[in-house]
């Protein structure tokens, strides 16, 4: 087992666990969505590239690449659909300054 693959898998696992801690720790739905974003972009890429280096021949690499591309194309669509459904049903984010909050409310009656 080569060292770069081990390193990438380690970074990927760390990022994944960070995302898991974030989804438990953050205060409201919208901030949790950013934590999930970490696990779906860089963590997935790191783990899948680490797996590619384990077995760098044949169709395995191509299939891992297909999984990676699919995840990268799917995750923004799913999170956008989720966020727009939440705003559409008036789930308000906890914002830092209160004036922004009023502005958001008035733009989404």
């Amino acid at each position: 087992m080569n060292i770069s693959s081990v390193l990438l898998l380690l970074i990927g696992s760390f990022l994944c666990i960070s995302g898991g801690v974030g989804i438990l720790r953050f205060p409201d739905f919208y901030t949790r969505m950013h934590a999930v974003g970490v696990t779906e972009t860089l963590a997935t890429a790191m783990i899948l590239i680490g797996l590619m280096l384990q077995n760098p021949d044949g169709l395995v690499v191509v299939k891992l690449m297909i999984i990676l591309l699919m995840t990268l194309f799917i995750s923004p669509t799913a999170s956008h659909a989720l966020a727009s459904a939440a705003v559409h049903n008036n789930l308000m984010p906890e914002l830092d300054n209160k004036e922004d909050n009023k502005k958001v409310k008035s733009s989404n009656p």
Binding site: Y30, H34, P76, S79, H80, A83, S84, A86, V87
Partner: peptide, 14 residues
């Protein structure tokens, strides 16, 4: 919009 959503930390809502 997809590039904004793909970079973690920012999400296009509407």
């Amino acid at each position: 919009a997809n590039s904004i959503t793909m970079t973690p930390g920012t999400v296009t809502v509407n």
